[in-house]
Amino acid sequence: MRITQGAYSFLPDLTDDQIRKQIAYCLDKGWAVSIEFTDDPHPRNTYWEMWGNPMFDLVDPVGVMGDLAACRAANPDHYIRLNAFDSSRGWEAVRLSFIVQRPKVEPTFRLERTEIEGRTQRYTLVTVR
């Protein structure tokens, strides 16, 4: 089962050329691009580790692709995603976020239901490896 977070997550993995074109689109819009990685893709884990700083004022996707290659080399069995931020209105807003690398074996999640007092039920997400 594949983790489905961000844009394109229901599609086959993007090639490097497709990733470069998405980065070029973001840069053409004036959005800052950042790279994040994690080994815990739990839906509640919204804060992944940043790889460097967000890349402001870039005009060529080569810089982002270079950082992506370095992040992939340092984290070969982690999830890696690209985020594009729009600050044109004076605050940062995520305009695009998508996974660009997945580990060879992806964890899956199961929902466990526990009945407590009366009709009350508690739901817990459990990682299954």
Rank of each mutant, 00 (worst) to 15 (best):
C71E: 05
C26P: 06
P43M: 11
A93H: 05
D40I: 06
E36F: 14
V59R: 05
N53W: 11
C71L: 07
H42A: 11
T127N: 01
P12L: 02
F37C: 13
Q121Y: 14
T38H: 00
G66L: 07
K21C: 08
M55E: 10
M1C: 03
E106P: 10
E106F: 12
A69Q: 13
T38K: 02
F98A: 03
I116H: 07
L27G: 04
P54M: 12
R44P: 00
G118E: 08
R119K: 13
D16S: 14
D17W: 11
I99A: 01
R119P: 02
R110W: 00
D13C: 08
G30H: 12
L96M: 15
T108N: 12
P107Q: 01
P76N: 10
A84I: 09
R89Q: 12
P61L: 02
L82Q: 03
D67W: 07
Y25H: 13
A7T: 06
E117C: 10
P43H: 11
Q101D: 00
I23L: 06
G63T: 04
R122L: 04
P12F: 01
V126T: 06
M1S: 05
K29H: 12
L58S: 04
N53P: 00
D67V: 01
L58N: 06
W91R: 15
A69H: 13
D86S: 10
S9H: 00
C71P: 04
L111I: 15
D86F: 11
E36W: 08
F37E: 07
P107K: 02
G66D: 10
E112T: 04
N83S: 14
A93C: 02
S34N: 13
D57M: 09
E112C: 06
E112F: 05
G66S: 08
P61D: 01
K29R: 14
I23W: 01
N53H: 10
T127G: 02
E112N: 08
H78F: 12
R95K: 15
R81N: 04
L58C: 14
Q121I: 09
T127M: 09
D40C: 10
L14C: 02
P103S: 07
L96F: 06
T15M: 11
V126G: 01
D60F: 06
V94I: 15
P103W: 00
D28A: 15
S87H: 11
R119Y: 12
D39G: 08
E92V: 11
S87I: 08
F37R: 06
K104N: 10
W48Q: 04
H78Q: 05
G90Y: 07
D17Y: 10
R110M: 06
F10Y: 05
W51H: 15
V126S: 01
T127K: 15
S9R: 01
F37T: 08
T38P: 03
E36D: 14
Q18I: 03
Y123D: 02
P103L: 01
R119G: 13
P12H: 03
L111P: 10
Y8F: 13
P103H: 02
F109E: 00
T124P: 07
I99K: 01
V100K: 07
Y25M: 10
Q22T: 04
N53S: 12
A74K: 14
P61N: 04
Y123Q: 07
G30F: 11
Q121E: 10
R113T: 09
G118F: 11
D39P: 03
D28K: 15
L11H: 05
A32W: 05
D16Y: 11
R113C: 09
